[in-house]
Every structure is written in structure tokens, then in C-alpha cells.
Amino acid sequence: MVEILEEKKGKDGRPIFVIKKSDLLEFMRQKKQEGFDHLSLITGVDRKDYMEVNYHLYSFSKNQYIVVKVTTDNLTVPSLISLWKSADWEEREQYDMLGIRFDGHPDLKRMFLPESWVGHPLRKDYDLNNVQYINMDEYGEDYATFDPGDGW
């Protein structure tokens, strides 16, 4: 049984369900059966001492929109890739930008930045003064480096 910790309305009038992280997959499966067939957006928010992940769901048939919210303090959230294929790239993007790990994602790697980039830029404690550069190795793969080296 899924326990809904809090149900409120956002400033835009969309219902927000706050649930426990362990209930996420079960809750989402229920919602998908209810007709929410469109996973629109996954947003991670860095709240400094914990991470918040918002899922925006839409139902084409019922024209309804809901937001599901979970919080995590150890940077892991279950992956929804088994329910919606669109979760794949969204989760990779959030992993890249905020470092949230999605358990069960088969190919969790960075979306925009190269694999060796240090830090996750959208975190509040990301240091912008620590300049990194990207170089290309002989196979055409990118790697991040602090030393600009040749060509820069």
C-alpha cells in the first residue's frame, strides 16, 4: 500500500503528491495503469542537504496533469525506465547535472558533459572558478582535464 505523505496544490494549480522513495515504483505503476501514459519531465532540485526529484505525469485520455515528488538524502532514486522509455534520457540528464543515481538504469552515463568531468554543475556547491577544459583523444572521445594543454 502506497502511503501519500502530503497532497497539495502547486502555484499553477497542479496537484502535487509527496511520497516515500521506496514507494515510488509502485505508485508510478498504479498511476500508469490509471492512464498517465506520458512521463513529461524529471527534475532534480538541489535543496542543499537533500535532493528532491519531481516527476511530471500527463494523461492523454483524461487530460490530467500531476506532479509526484520524492526526496532523497543519499542521491539514489529508483529508475522508471521499465515503465516509460522517455525516462532514459531524462534520468541521464539529471545524473549529469545533479549527480542523482537512478537505481536500475541500464546505461547511466552523462548526457552532455564527458564522463571524466569533475562535479555536477547544477549543484549549489559547484565551484565555477575551478575551470575545466575538454580535449579529444585519438579515437574521437572527449575527456575533461584541468590542464588545457595543446590546442587551447
Binding site: 502547486g10 502555484k11 497542479r14 519531465l41 532540485v45 511530471h56
Partner: peptide, 20 residues
Amino acid sequence: EGEVYARTESSKGEFGVYIV
């Protein structure tokens, strides 16, 4: 203060902006 998601139809599809 608060959080808002707004979706609009751009020429490419549903363009949504989520602001906290």
C-alpha cells in the same frame, strides 16, 4: 516563491518551463 510548471506549444512540441 513556490514552484510552477507551465507548458506551451512551441513549433517543435510541448515546451515546458519548471521554475522553483
